[in-house]
Amino acid sequence: MSIAAKSVLLIGFLVLAACNNPDRYGAGGAGGAGGAGGAGGIDTTGLGDPNNPTSIAYFNQTVGDRVLFAVDQSTISPEGRAVLTAQAQWLLTNTGYAAIIEGHADERGTREYNLNLGAKRAAAVQNFLISQGVPPGRLRTISYGKERPIEICSTEACYSQNRRAVTVLSAGAGV
């Protein structure tokens, strides 16, 4: 990648951070974007100490920020329910945070269909969290369809990592 392209990438990140876009993907992606704080109306959210149970880092790493889905499905698995139950408890304890739930699909499907599928996954997570008592006003959803894979795939084991819904926290409840 050329230096020019790198700088475009960097600018892209800053712009995204500026509008508090949940466009953070990939393992550690949230940390990378969250760290790009600074001037110019950019909201900075401290990740905190992963050993501190009230930190975003703790939520991401210990509670678990994501659930995975079966092919072409938006039903939450038993493992997923356990993760989301813990997410709900954390959100009910740490009331200063809002969340955007990102729905994603693997690349085996058309763009339009996968945008829908990602939306269904995000909605399924949102509905589960609401059923656990999280106020709807603290939750928003977005679908990236197949536009934001975290893994570059040619095997099912890899595709499964891309079929995900990620709960991305930000400071400030009541979005």
Binding site: L9, G12, D23, Y25, G26, R148
Partner: peptide, 29 residues
């Protein structure tokens, strides 16, 4: 860019691929 960090820009070109012009930057999908 790589598939897991793809940059996308709106662009136009002649039907034969000549005269490519970009209409957006790559800051959003």
């Amino acid at each position: 860019g790589p598939k897991n960090a793809r940059l996308k820009r709106l662009a136009v070109m002649d039907y034969d691929g000549a005269n490519v012009a970009y209409l957006t930057d790559s800051s959003s999908i």
